[in-house]
Amino acid sequence: MHFRYLGRSGFKISEITYGNWLTHGSQIENDIATACVRAALEVGISTFDTADVYANTAAETVLGAALKGERRESLEILTKVFGPTGPKGHNDVGLSRKHILESIDGSLSRLQTDYVDLYQAHRFDYETPLEETMQAFADIVRQGKALYIGVSEWTEEQLRAGAALAKQLNFQLISNQPEYSALWRVIEDRIVPTSQELGISQIVWSPVAQGVLSGKYLPGAPLPEGSRATDERGGAGAVKRFLSDDVLTRVQNLAPIARELDLTLAQLAIAWVLQNDNVATAIIGASRPEQVVENVKASGVTIPTELMSRIDEVLGGIVERDPVRTSERSPAAREA
């Protein structure tokens, strides 16, 4: 396993992170979830990403139980705050001081730890003054409940404003967690240059484009039984945008490039995002331990420049690059 610094800090994380969105507490049984976490630990993954909103807090509980007994100092535990949790009342959502301070205590209890290494604003909150949000994060850092602060799916303007306030409050904003894959490159034009300037790294989710870049979805063929694309409660909506025959045909045309590198298509997809110097880690999920073992082989892979160019040629115009798509990720009004 290779490790990278997160942002302009001395904090290192594994360049493959195990994430439990859509799986723990919902799609898979707890014993399989624990087996996946054990597999991650065995192959050298030390960084684990979750969120209180995943399975309405159940994902944090499952992860905390699975990591129990591990040396805490050898782990990097990441979680997030924003989405509606609990009974989803009027203060059970957003980035208000009340919700943040109550949420961190809930997360620590469920994760069975005294602190998280990185606490992330899961989205931008248009209904709470940014000053209030950043002051709450500063207080959590000073209390020792979180060592570092990050965000997820913030625009370049939001990153600049957040980083400026963090500096005034004497803590660092060191990370952003956006979607990023060879098919979804909306961060490249604005987010990445801004982040490099500010000392912020990317913790990227969905590097395999919801499984589409694994090649398991074939053009003109029925959707594989039990796949994410068939689960209306567990991510089918996110996959549909990639399921056109044009996209699926081009993904299949990446297979010769993967073979040249002795990689599977999924490994190629993960290795591809790690070629970006601003990416600190790629989050992988799993419903079986063997998926973890296979995908971690993308760590340390260097894709030659000529093959990166060939990937671009194969994918062509199907790649989404519009930076405006980032601003669509944060709701203008809270759900609750």
Rank of each mutant, 00 (worst) to 15 (best):
D114V: 08
T305V: 12
A298Y: 00
V247E: 00
A161S: 08
E290K: 05
W154H: 13
V151D: 04
L213K: 02
E225G: 06
L198V: 07
V273Q: 04
I283E: 06
A33H: 04
R228C: 05
V319T: 06
G317H: 08
V301R: 10
D105E: 15
A282S: 02
G83K: 02
A209E: 01
E132F: 07
Y18I: 03
W205Q: 07
D49N: 13
D139P: 01
I32E: 15
L315G: 04
W154M: 13
N278M: 05
F3G: 03
T17F: 08
L111S: 08
V292D: 03
Q27I: 13
I140D: 00
S109C: 11
F3M: 13
R71P: 13
F11L: 15
F137A: 06
K240L: 06
L63W: 03
V239L: 09
G150Y: 09
I318Q: 01
K80F: 05
E188Q: 12
A55K: 02
T133V: 09
R8P: 01
Q210A: 06
G211W: 10
G69H: 10
Y148F: 14
D31W: 11
V319R: 05
K80V: 06
I149C: 01
F82Q: 01
T50D: 00
Q267T: 09
N253I: 09
Y119A: 06
W205N: 11
L263E: 00
E232C: 04
T17C: 14
A59L: 11
T155K: 05
E179N: 10
E76T: 15
V141S: 00
P193S: 12
P219S: 08
I257F: 04
D277P: 11
L147H: 10
K145N: 02
S14Y: 02
R123F: 09
D312C: 10
K68N: 11
A39T: 02
V239G: 05
A236K: 12
I13A: 09
S9T: 15
A40M: 08
S46C: 02
V208I: 04
G89S: 09
G64T: 04
L118Y: 02
D262M: 08
S96W: 11
L243C: 05
L101A: 03
Y5K: 15
D52G: 11
T57E: 13
E42D: 15
R97K: 15
D246M: 06
I104H: 03
I32F: 12
Y119P: 07
K12E: 04
R233D: 09
A33D: 04
I77A: 03
V293I: 15
L159N: 00
V279G: 00
T264F: 02
E15F: 12
L213H: 02
T61W: 11
Q143E: 15
T305A: 15
A209G: 01
I311H: 01
V151I: 12
D277V: 13
N253S: 14
E313M: 05
T50W: 00
V279H: 00
H90V: 15
E127I: 04
E156M: 11
S181E: 01
G220A: 12
S74K: 09
T305E: 14
L101R: 07
L315K: 07
F124M: 08
S227H: 03
I257R: 03
G235F: 07
D52Q: 13
T194V: 13
D139T: 10
T249S: 13
S330A: 07
L213S: 03
E73D: 15
I32P: 07
D92A: 14
L22M: 09
I16Y: 03
K167Y: 07
S330W: 01
